[in-house]
Write a protein that binds this DNA or RNA. Sequence first.
DNA 1: CGGCGGGATGTTATCGCTCACATACACCTC
DNA 2: GAGGTGTATGTGAGCGATAACATCCCGCCG
Lengths: 328, 328
Amino acid sequence: MTDVAALAGVSHQTVSRVINGSTQVRDETRERVLDAMRELDYQANSVARALVTGRSRTLGVITFNTTLYGPASTLLGLERAAHAEGYFIGIVSLESLERTAVVQAIERLRALSVAGIMVVAPHLATTHGLWDLPGDVPVVAVEAGPEDGVAVAAVDQYDGARLATQHLLDLGHKTVRHIAGPADWLEAQRRIDGWRETLAAAGATSEPPLRGDWSPLSGYEVGRRLLEDSDVTAVFVANDQMALGLLRALHERGCDVPGDVSVVGFDDIPEAEFFTPPLTTVRQDFNEMGRRSLHLLLDQIAAGERSQTRVTVPAGLVRRASTAPPPV
Amino acid sequence: MTDVAALAGVSHQTVSRVINGSTQVRDETRERVLDAMRELDYQANSVARALVTGRSRTLGVITFNTTLYGPASTLLGLERAAHAEGYFIGIVSLESLERTAVVQAIERLRALSVAGIMVVAPHLATTHGLWDLPGDVPVVAVEAGPEDGVAVAAVDQYDGARLATQHLLDLGHKTVRHIAGPADWLEAQRRIDGWRETLAAAGATSEPPLRGDWSPLSGYEVGRRLLEDSDVTAVFVANDQMALGLLRALHERGCDVPGDVSVVGFDDIPEAEFFTPPLTTVRQDFNEMGRRSLHLLLDQIAAGERSQTRVTVPAGLVRRASTAPPPV
DNA sequence: CGGCGGGATGTTATCGCTCACATACACCTC
DNA sequence: GAGGTGTATGTGAGCGATAACATCCCGCCG
């Protein structure tokens, strides 16, 4: 910076003003400084800036260690949005699901002077870690979060589940079974709620949901158990991977999909369209959610205070070939 | 830090020594400082440290904007490894595949004073951006990189393709067709090489490979074209997603897999085991690759100079139900 | 024509840490 | 006992930027 200032014949402060777009610089001077910067191939040192301002243009993302489609896509959506706004993303993944792990992760990020933190960890336990976090860092819970206390951006899980369930009811199924995700995932819970309440509203009976762990294998195993009950004609599965496992279980049992049993998934992973049969599922717009989360965070940063705004991104049903009216 | 020093009755420098594990501190003094740190809930400010040392404990990862399984898993593997070593990961995703985009991304990361950079962008064009990068930052190309000039950690694509092709030949297929990835992806090229040379070594004829873009849809479309040639009995597909598309095309055409046509994929995505039929594929150990890449980088950081070491992680064939001897 | 207001620029302190060097004290050697 | 060696600690400078305040210059007003 000193070199640039010397070359342009101004003080380092004027250089700083140019960098930060101050209006207090004459155009001609600005040009001279800009030229000098180009000439010396100068780039502002963001570490020094972060030191003095106490804020870097880095955002922290806390994510759970997983290759699941949802979280991975969310991360990408977040990065794209942040990049567009000129922010960096630093990621920290959680070792465990304990609330202390979240608190630790937040501490680590604070030491980096991040401008804000986005938490992509839709577990009950981890979101509770958000209750007692230090007051001076803006935080957004992405995908799912506690009912209040922090800002949250999420796809409307409840409505997605309703859409799926209603679609099956509309086709004429008497009731719909549900293969749910792990009990401590908030999204799993919301999907259960949407499913159960839609059934109730239609006056349909509801069996308790079965539990998988999001993996295709669990969908397969739980699916086999489910099929011992021969009454099943429609299943709403809490994600596409488990739905794939279920399709396999059905296939092995010689059940036709959708002739004998209809299946609806959740997520719309890229593969879903090419399953056998192509899967009817609920699409989540992770990019949009990333963008919304980011702006929620940026708003807090700009306002200088924590908000509790809740933003919801709608889910959409994608109809393919895995659903049909029940067998006669 | 000053507060801690005051509370412990020492100078700030002694606190610094304790933080950095200097041996030049008496045990009793160290304890006093540690107590003071705990008492004040003190955490060292890594920004200030980065400013003075010129290095932060942050590593930059440059990745291409994608939800593909490979890059996503690699990123996670990298993060896990870095976390274990006490490093942060900052991610920057590429807007385009131009080499200038890579250079820009590297510049951005340099302004953050990252200790080193890992590039996960296995395109021909982007890796060329690695030729003329500034000399003072350690760099590792992950997954694939230029033949020389930078350190590279990669899964052995060539051998993976050989394994797949040889497996099909061993089953008795006269030759094996190949659906390849995009031409400018280095991995796609290596897989083609492995496939072609294995065929040549066996004295089998080889048709030119067909090109997909990694997506299930492209696998489906290219697959339909491929099937117009009724001689096909075995196909090696460059990733599992395209293999899924091909399976669908085969299904629609009434071809039995593996009865009429055998299919081998690449990647071993979690879904592959539950395809119809379960897919024989080549597994890549992304975690291991992440770990190796990181250590390659850490070694460079420790040595203070750039290396050109090349590390290869073996690939493994996973046999499932999509391959069998050719029809008689 | 002196004084005043405000835009453009410069000066100095500061962020929280590490580095290089200075100092203090203990112990040993000749 | 003077001098050397080594360990434990303190002091001051400086990393590269921004913030707050000081200064300069110019035009305008009474």
